[in-house]
């Protein structure tokens, strides 16, 4: 681990100023991802600015009937919050499907969505990685791709030497639920506060795989707002993984079903939590029979690119996420009828 300075400013504004002033500074909240990466040499900041105790730890009611999750609220407290459990089960379930009790006690609302994408080669500084060392190439292409992306990728075997190539996936469960909930992100930055849709927070690699989000340097998440949901909304999170617990998703599905339609986000399949807008369009106003959902998912996954690789590659994710969406929506509609 490279030496770094540590600062715990008096308030959020000062924290933002400190990070903004130092090009190689990072925020520290729960630390569950950053400290991991510090040890691996993946993160090499000169300055670590601790915001864990600066933002709100509370979950508060919003005037419009929604909820505001303070950035420092822990994943376990949010999952345990009665209002979240009753009104946003998809979020509680996603949080509870993530990591472990110990990690959820440390991980925060602001930090969880900002964890880096996950890839065994990104985490190993002895292998080339465009995300870690821009332009060095992508070791994952043709390698161990079980946990890698099939959506938002141009080809089944993209050029590993192209500087834009990255097939890592975003590992957060919480983020998939927040994407489906149309959450809003409250951000404070060097040039003031702004609000952005959660679905705009993450970005595809494009020509800059090193950048996971659309936040500028020094921008800090201060809260995440959950919009109110119409009465009768049903939601669920379904995670499919290699162990029964304590494993990253192979694929996951967050579904929010209202009278108007379905909001659907997929995890484990892309560099971002993947909002399945194409499928949503096809499902709008339709009865959610298995056949209708299958057709919608066929359309959503038409551009999917299975990644060949050692140990069989990840082509299985395409039928798997397809089947998981069908099953999740079947469960929600069956429950609604019951």
């Amino acid at each position: 681990m490279k030496p770094f300075s540590y600062a715990r400013p008096g308030d959020v504004a000062e924290a933002v100023r400190e990070v903004a002033a130092e090009p190689n500074a990072v925020f520290l909240a729960g630390g569950t991802n950053l400290v991991d990466h510090l040890k691996l040499g993946v993160a090499t900041p000169d300055l670590v600015v601790d915001v864990r105790t600066l933002t709100s730890q509370e979950v508060t009611d919003l005037p419009d009937g929604g909820l505001r999750l303070g950035a420092a609220s822990t994943n376990s407290e949010v999952a345990a919050d009665r209002r979240v459990r009753e009104r946003y089960p998809v979020l509680a379930q996603a949080l509870l499907a993530g990591a472990t009790g110990q990690l959820r006690n440390a991980a925060t609302t602001g930090g969880n969505p900002l964890q880096r994408t996950r890839c065994v080669y990104f985490q190993d500084v002895t292998t080339p990685c465009n995300k870690r060392e821009p332009g060095s190439g992508c070791s994952a292409v043709g390698g161990y791709t079980r946990y890698h992306a099939v959506l938002g990728v141009d080809a089944a075997l993209p050029d590993p030497d192209a500087p834009g190539t990255c097939i890592a996936t975003h590992p957060s469960d919480m983020a998939v639920a927040l994407a489906a909930l149309d959450a809003q992100v409250q951000v404070l930055g060097p040039s003031g506060a702004r609000t952005l849709p959660f679905t705009d927070l993450h970005r595809l690699p494009g020509d800059d795989p090193a950048t996971d989000t659309t936040l500028g340097h020094g921008e800090l998440i201060t809260a995440i707002d959950l919009p109110p949901l119409p009465a009768g909304t049903r939601s669920a999170y379904r995670k499919v993984r290699d162990r029964a617990s304590y494993a990253f998703a192979l694929v996951s599905v967050a579904a929010v079903v209202t009278d108007d339609g379905v909001r659907l986000a997929l995890g484990g399949v892309a560099h971002t939590p993947w909002r399945a807008t194409r499928a949503e369009e096809l499902l709008r106003g339709r009865a959610l029979t298995d056949d209708v959902v299958r057709a919608a998912m066929d359309a959503e996954l038409a551009a999917a690119q299975p990644q060949p690789g050692i140990d069989g590659g990840n082509g299985f994710k395409i039928p798997l996420v397809h089947r998981t969406v069908v099953a999740t929506l079947r469960q929600l509609t069956t429950e609604a009828q019951a």
Binding site: Y6, R8, L28, G31, T32, V35, D36, V48, D50, R52, Q102, L103, N105, A106
Partner: peptide, 10 residues
């Protein structure tokens, strides 16, 4: 909590 991921200074 897991204290392998907790910086002492924090």
């Amino acid at each position: 909590s897991l204290i392998c991921l907790a910086l002492a200074v924090a």
